[in-house]
Write a protein that binds this DNA or RNA. Structure first.
Length: 548
RNA sequence: CGGGGCGUAGCGCAACGGUAGCGCACGUGCUUUGGGAGCACGAGGUUGUGGGUUCGAAUCCCGCCGCCCCGACCA
């Protein structure tokens, strides 16, 4: 039986309320135990062997200086270390026995599912249909589009043997699906009446990486790739914008991450595309992260695969293509855009748990009274609908101490915590604590259910605003290369600077400073200037930053 | 692919020629619970792998494998 005899209060959703340490085997055992008493008695926990566990190790520094979580690296001192600690200790993901690949654990996967589902709604609302294409791309197909091959070659993983024999033609494990899709749809597209063809794939892709950073850079990752074909370039251009808008909305409205929309420079354009649009976000270390890209493929792949359709004017033409992608990297963006010294700070829309209730009691009598108050409360919470669906809450009845639970859930970024103890029961209140600023206030239990949707919506807005303020405070306009270098060195952040459009100037800046052109923003005003490097005229400022 | 580091219990480490131990985590029990509780007992290891040296190897030597970090490329 469970550690807590009244486990009926416990939600069956988490891998365990008091998981702080975490070896996989232990996690699995805990899961097994919970499952044995939960809703699905027969269900076995997933096999999570070989996963590296990481002890929380809070005893190494029992008296933390400021925060309550002393076990993660200091965010301002060591951002990469902080990021790694957060991902591992929140049990979002772990390293795997496979080089360069990660295991996405339940808490991380839940966050991915949230953004995935929201993006899927956008994709379907705009008329795209989900499809599936093979994991393998025959070498001959991948090599049809010249720029495409050249761009992806270094990152492609090949299957050379199967069935005990060497294959007559190598198979690429898809780094992306343009090539195989173009080959297939040429049979589907005969007439302008077959266009536009609007498809989307949810799948995994492999791009061989030598450096691994959980969620940000792994050899295999999950994503969505939309592929569309249009009779006209204008139709395709419109779709490029539709994709980018879906990404903007998911980033800003769902994940509370403000983004800058713009066009990529030629050097940063997708291999095989005429142009690429992207959204860029600022992380809390002031570096940029690309949050989604949308490509105009023009007729490049259509010509390579010889896709033709008969237009209204009875002339055979190549259709125009687009493709756009959004990956699990955005889970990393969510961590890095909002997290603080105590761990994750999640936007309510994407948070696996929006509210955690922590019971506090000393005696059995108190426990009974607190349980009764919580039962009465949760009866009202079960009907609550938030901007992201039914309220997601959990009562933490595990037998860890209250202080332990506070730290545990703060590390995991749960937006609200409600503490209910004997004193609160007597007054019909609880103590409601906001994760983002840790403000505490008494909250009457009777009215809480009605208030929560607004409180969550306000929290969501506040997170977005905080991120936007941060970005604006760290965006600098510079006009000379000396100023550029000095500002980048001193403050980092986004640098808005004039650029003539020449790839050589772009490269020089990248080589000398490490900064790249993230985008040529759509929303910046036209502004005559002189290129940082060669002084030639520039029509508007472009966004430079060090990027992930 | 170049440079560096590391493989000992789930995690972090110690033992550095005489056959493996500590902390955390884990299990049981009792006492606890308003910011990471305490005590007691307990379970857990062919020391990454293959070979060599030696009376004896986690330890010394060689090969292999794996992982991490730093550089060039990417969502």
């Amino acid at each position: 039986m469970p550690v807590s005899s009244s486990s009926a209060h416990s939600c069956s959703c988490s891998a365990g309320a008091r998981t702080t340490d975490s070896s996989a085997d232990q996690g699995a055992r805990r899961l097994a135990r919970r499952h044995s008493i939960g809703r699905s008695p027969g269900e076995q926990p997933p096999g999570l062997r070989h996963v590296r566990g990481h002890a929380l190790g809070y005893h190494t520094d029992p008296m933390a200086k400021t925060g309550f979580v002393s076990s993660i690296a200091d965010q301002s001192e060591d951002f990469p270390g902080w990021y790694n600690d957060v991902v591992l200790k929140t049990e979002m993901a772990s390293y795997s026995p496979v080089r360069g690949c990660m295991i996405i654990r339940p808490y991380g996967y839940a966050i991915w599912e949230s953004m995935r589902d929201e993006l899927d709604r956008h994709i379907k609302r705009t008329g795209h249909q989900n499809v599936y294409f093979p994991l393998f791309v025959p070498r001959s197909l991948l090599e049809k589009e010249a720029e495409h091959v050249e761009g992806f070659n270094p990152q492609v993983a090949w299957v050379t043997h199967a069935g005990g024999e060497e294959l007559s033609e190598w198979l690429a494990i898809r780094p992306t699906s343009e090539a195989i899709i173009a080959e297939v749809v040429k049979d589907w597209i005969q007439s302008y009446r077959d266009l536009p063809l609007l498809m989307n794939l949810w799948n995994n892709v492999v791009r061989w990486e030598l450096r691994t950073r959980l969620f940000l850079r792994t050899a295999e990752f999950l994503w969505q790739e939309a592929h569309t074909f249009h009779a006209t370039e204008a139709g395709a251009a419109e779709n490029v914008a539709i994709g980018l808008e879906a990404y903007r909305s998911v980033s800003e409205d769902w994940l509370a991450i403000p983004v800058v929309r713009g066009r990529k420079s030629r050097a940063e354009t997708f291999p095989g595309a005429d142009y690429s649009h992207a959204i860029e976000a600022m992380m809390r270390d002031k570096r940029a992260l690309q949050a989604g890209t949308s490509h105009m493929l023009g007729q490049n792949f259509a010509k390579a695969a010889d896709i033709q359709f008969l237009d209204v004017d009875n002339v055979r033409k190549h259709p125009y293509g687009t493709s756009w992608g959004f990956s699990t990297r955005m889970v990393g963006a969510t961590i890095m855009a909002h997290g603080d010294e105590s761990g994750l700070v999640l936007p309510p829309n994407a948070a696996p748990k929006q509210l955690v209730i922590v019971p506090i009691f000393r005696t059995e009598e108190d426990r009974t009274a607190v349980a009764a108050a919580i039962d009465a409360l949760t009866a009202t919470l079960d009907g609550v609908t938030t901007a992201s669906g039914p309220l997601r809450y959990q009562v933490d009845w595990s037998d860890a101490s209250p202080g332990f639970k506070y730290s545990h859930w703060e590390l995991r970024g749960v937006p609200f915590r409600l503490e209910i103890g004997p004193r609160d029961v007597a007054s019909g209140q609880g103590v409601l604590v906001r994760r983002v600023d840790r403000t505490k206030e008494p909250a009457p239990l009777a009215g809480l259910a009605a208030e929560l949707p607004k409180r969550l919506a306000d929290y969501q807005k506040a997170l977005f605003q905080r991120a936007l303020d941060f970005r604006e405070a760290n965006t600098h306009s510079v006009d000379t290369y000396d100023d550029f270098k000095a500002t980048l060195e001193a403050d980092g952040g986004f640098l808005m600077a004039p650029w003539c459009g020449d790839a050589a100037c772009e490269k020089q800046i990248n080589d000398e400073t490490g900064a790249t052109i993230r985008v040529i923003p759509f929303d910046s005003p036209d502004e005559a200037g002189k290129c940082l490097i060669d002084g030639r005229p520039s029509e508007r400022r472009v966004l430079f930053a060090k990027a992930y």
